[in-house]
Design a protein around this nucleic acid. Structure first.
Lengths: 189, 189
DNA sequence: GTCTATAAAGGGATAGAC
DNA sequence: GTCTATCCCTTTATAGAC
């Protein structure tokens, strides 16, 4: 209860995430975030000790979930069934709650993957996830297919431009295409 | 001949493109670019009237090539053969000369696609290209496959992590995976 | 927990000498 | 074609009052 001081911290996170995603992290100033919330910059610094700590604050949760997913995958056999379940679980997390927003933020701010520590961690988790999806087939084509599978889930948000498509339908389409790609992994022998 | 004053303009373009891609457009200052070239900021402003004009200067050429490609595709029948030739030509341009560097720049600076005019133009061309790739099959799945096809060509640069892979091999792998995706477009009837 | 005020630095861009 | 010098603005971040 000692943390629920009106939820200002959460409001800062929400506004920052939105502006960082739409305009870019570098182009969004703390002044702009503060103005949207009708507070001052100094108030922001009470809740976060720097600009990039705001990013870490909402990315850490996402990192934890990815770690869980990767750990689970590492214990499974490298079969098509495992890969399908893995991408299915990943898609579930990408279409639930606030997590897709965080992933969209990183997609829009690719250069942060290099300059911020939390960005490097996110990059690392994505590569590990792709590694699990192609485990058992070390061919270059398999690596590409694994990466595209993840991108299929992400890009279903914007690549499917038809009007009136629900989230559930987007997920279904993404998994349909992903399954086709996964089916081609590991059949080289 | 009146423009060949030592190629300073080209050197500025090359350094800017590299730094913009590696660190991000917003994070790279004109001072930093000038220092790398051992000139002053004012010298940069003799060649380009603003920071974003540097971007336009190397993006315009890329835009022209994409326009040509889109115009060509629009005249062809919406068949699998056309789609395969189209993605093949696109891959050729992505693996030749300086063009891939420009595309990597835009990938790393996604937010510029919104804020810069030339970015909006590039975004528009990519969507048109995807449109040509899925023309004749307006299903959401076809749109997703078309987008993934383009991404397959782009991502072959970083998703294929095996050492010692040549550009030619990357292209071949990308087109192999792209062809599988394209084969699923337009067979809904 | 939020404020005012300010420090310290760096950004893009321009004027005018050479 | 490049320089020095400078303008004006915004940025992140901090100090200290309330």
């Amino acid at each position: 209860m000692s943390e629920s001081t009106g939820g200002t911290r959460q409001r800062i996170q929400a506004v920052a995430l939105e502006l960082f995603t739409e305009q870019g992290y570098e182009k969004t100033s703390l002044r702009e975030i503060a103005e949207r919330l009708n507070v001052t910059k100094a108030a922001l610094y009470y809740h976060f000790k720097s600009k990039d700590e705001i990013v870490s604050s909402f990315a850490d949760d996402r990192l934890r979930r990815m770690d869980e997913l990767i750990a689970w995958a590492a214990e499974q056999p490298a079969t098509l069934a495992t890969r399908r379940t893995l991408i299915g679980r990943y898609a579930d997390s990408m279409f639930a709650g606030e997590l897709p927003k965080v992933m969209r933020f990183f997609e829009q701010n690719q250069t942060l993957l290099k300059s911020l520590v939390v960005g490097q961690q996110m990059r690392d988790r994505m590569m590990r996830l792709a590694g699990e999806l192609s485990r058992g087939d070390e061919s270059p084509a398999a690596q590409l297919r694994a990466a595209l599978t993840l991108f299929a889930v992400h890009s279903s948000w914007f690549a499917v431009r038809a009007p009136g498509v629900t989230d559930e339908e987007r997920k279904k389409i993404a998994l349909e295409v992903a399954d086709e790609l996964l089916a081609r992994i590991g059949d080289g022998d």
